[in-house]
Computed example of a mutant assay.
Amino acid sequence: MKFWIQRQLTVIVVVALLGSLSLVGCTSPQADSSTTATEAPTITAQANNQDMSELPKLEGKATVVMTVNGSPITIEVDGDRAPVTAGNFVDLVERGFYDGLTFHRVVKEPNPFVAQGGDPEGTGMGGFVDPDTNQPRYIPLEIAPEGSDEPVYGKPIGGTPALKHDRGAIAMARSQAPNSASSQFYFTLADHSFLDGNYAVFGRVTDGMEAVDGIAQGDSIESAKVTAGLENLKK
C-alpha cells in the first residue's frame, strides 16, 4: 500500500513538471490569451510546413559562453544532431538577443527540474521577432532518433533520441503545439528521461554546471557569446 501511494505521488509530480514546462513555453503562432491549459494551440498548415531553408542552421558544433551571476556557463551546441534548433540558438546569441533577459521559471522543488529563460517579455509567453521582417520566428520540433543521421521534424518520437535530457542538457521550451518553439530554452537540473522524445535538446553544459545550479528565478543573463564554431552558422 505504501509503495502504491509513493508511485502515485511520483506520477503526479512528473505530470505537474511536464505541464509547467509546456505551458510556460512560447505561444504558438496562432495562440492567443484565451488559450487554456486544456486547449492545444492551433498551428496552421503554413506553420507546419514552414520553409526551413529560411531558418539559420548550424552545420557542426559551436561553443557558447553564457554569464549568469558573474559566473561563466560553457555550452556545447550540437548542430550535427539538431541543426535548425542549434542554428536558431547560435543566431540569437550572436545577435545579442539573450543579453539582459531573465530566467523567468526555475523549478527546484520537490526535486531539481529546470531553469528556463530566453523570453523577452519575462512572462513565459514571448519569443523572438525578427527585426528585418517584423515577424515572429518559430522553429519546428527537431529530434534525431538514436542511431539515425536525420532528425524527425514536427512531431515527438517514440524511441530513444540521440540527445537526451541528462543533467546539464539545454533544450527548447514550447507550448503544446510541436512547432511553437522560438527563443525560450531551459537547462535540466537533473536527469529527466521522461522528457526525451518530446522536447528538442540541442546541446549540453560542459563547464559551469555549479553556476546553473545556482540560478534563481529572476536572475539575468549578463551576456551570451559564441566563442567557437561561428563559422558553422549558415543563414
Rank of each mutant, 00 (worst) to 15 (best):
G122D: 09
P131N: 10
E109Y: 11
V129E: 13
E109K: 14
P120Q: 08
V114T: 04
Q135I: 07
V114D: 01
T102C: 03
R105H: 01
G118L: 00
H104R: 09
P110Q: 11
R137C: 00
P136I: 05
G127V: 03
T102F: 04
N134L: 14
D132F: 09
V114L: 08
H104N: 13
G124E: 08
P131D: 14
V106N: 00
G100W: 07
D130K: 10
M125E: 15
G124V: 12
D132W: 05
F128P: 05
A115P: 06
D132I: 06
G100N: 06
L101H: 07
T102N: 07
E121R: 15
P136G: 06
Q116D: 01
V106M: 01
E109S: 14
L141W: 01
M125A: 15
P131M: 12
N134F: 11
L101P: 05
G124C: 13
P136F: 03
L141A: 05
Y138A: 04
G124K: 11
Y138I: 04
F103W: 04
V114I: 15
D130G: 09
P131G: 11
D119V: 06
E142T: 03
V114S: 01
P131V: 13
G124S: 13
D119Q: 10
G127K: 02
D130F: 02
N134K: 14
G100R: 06
K108C: 14
R137A: 05
P120H: 01
F128K: 02
V129H: 10
N111C: 10
R105L: 13
E142L: 04
T102V: 13
Q116K: 11
D132A: 14
D130V: 12
G127M: 06
N134P: 02
A115Y: 03
A115V: 10
A115C: 07
N111M: 14
P120C: 06
F103E: 03
F113Y: 15
I139M: 12
Q116M: 13
H104T: 02
P110V: 12
